[in-house]
């Protein structure tokens, strides 16, 4: 339950889109994607998520959510956990 409280409005569209992208990139089931929590580790935690896969992930986020992610915005913190990435993408969507 703690992860639902950590992502307090986890049912929103950005969260759903991001989970779908993660599901597509990692080739995991919808159930596993739904079980990803704010503190689930991404880059540096999942061996299959290498730099090329992250590059693909970011490009897909740009395409599906109609945002542009600059290279200097990409850092370890935003990529380290699902919560970090979601927070970054939400801020980008709000700014756009």
């Amino acid at each position: 339950m703690s992860r639902e409280t950590a992502l307090d409005d986890s049912a929103d569209a950005t969260d759903a889109a991001l989970r779908q992208i993660l599901q597509d990139v990692l080739g995991i089931s919808a159930e596993r994607a739904a079980s990803v929590g704010a503190d689930t580790g991404l880059f540096g935690h999942l061996p299959e998520l290498d730099s090329m896969a992250v590059a693909g992930l970011l490009t897909e986020i740009e395409d599906r959510l109609a945002i542009v992610i600059e290279d200097d915005e990409v850092d370890g913190e935003m990529l380290e956990t699902y919560g970090g990435l979601l927070e970054f993408v939400r801020a980008k969507c709000d700014a756009g």
């Binding site: 880059f43 730099s51 090329m52 992250v54 490009t59 290279d71 200097d72 990409v74 370890g76 990529l79």
Partner: peptide
Amino acid sequence: QVLRAMLRARTIAAREAGREETR
């Protein structure tokens, strides 16, 4: 698009290795 994805992968890998590279 092909180039952008590969450059992005390289800048991410460089940052992870402690080097700063820009597109």
